[in-house]
Amino acid sequence: MWAKIKRASVENELLYLFLHSPVAMVATLIAVLCIAGALLAPWLAPSNPYDLASFDLMDSMVPPAWADNGDERFALGTDDQGRDLLSAILYGTRLSLMVGVFSVAFAAVLGVSIGLMAGYIGGRFDTIMMRIADIQLSLPAILTALLIDGVARGILPQQRHDELMLIVLTVAIGLSLWVNFARTARASTFVERNKEYVQAAEIMGMHPLRIMLVQILPNIMGPILVILTVDLAVAILLEATLSYLGVGVPPNQPSLGTLIRIGTEYLFSGDWWIVLFPSATLITLIISVNVLGDFLRDALNPRLR
């Protein structure tokens, strides 16, 4: 069957390159494992970290199962509140991925629409949008996210805020990432809009919206797809950073960032496992997504082929 896939894929450049790149295949495998683990957390995890009754303070700071004093109930040990670390990581990855995917999707939709319009319409609209992008770019992503989070805290009452925390976080991260999409989409649109097929559509009297969405958009998807993967890693990292700083997800919901924050407090007292395992998960996830993004960039760039 493998041979059959290979033969069929000779037609498909991307699949062919993929099947000949062990690095990309390993990265995909790891990413898929991470995502599957995150999605299936409720069924895979030994305990539910959201259920306060399921853990006991007596079990706090238990080292991993194979270490001295380890407990076989907790494969990767427990944290300061007696939560099973493996379960917390599985649920945490789920949260981190969710925030990452939604914020990147938000950034992509916003950025690509602005970029397409700026590139196609040009003129004053383009100038204004790109100046806004410049301003956005001069603010560090974390600062943008902190600002939005701070504003949200100011406006919303405490309880509402905790409920809406995830949405606020997604919007905050999305807003700090849209510029990348907008710039790339605009630059590619500039190239495409001068091609003769766009002129042909204009001569026929096609509606500008249709020209942008049906004619140009499919032709600029290549570079955007690449940014999508790279920025997914950035978004996950940003979420971890914000949670680490304590302005991200609420502390009773474990994300990779909050786990690492809790872990660092105990790092110097020799309780290394709390910080190590969430960090390792985060690094593996981000490297695999980044490698995938790099692979896509090379595979979709005809000049590097």
């Binding site: 003769e196 097929y197 002129q199 001569i203 026929m204 009297g205 004619q215 499919p218 032709n219």
Partner: peptide, 26 residues
């Protein structure tokens, strides 16, 4: 010239570069 102007249909154009005058994704 409006998009519905009849000349949009009655006058058609064939471009120089056949590689860029057709949309590769359609």
């Amino acid at each position: 010239r409006s998009r519905q102007h009849p000349s949009r249909r009655r006058i058609q154009m064939v471009f120089q570069d056949p590689y860029s005058s057709l949309n590769n994704r359609r």
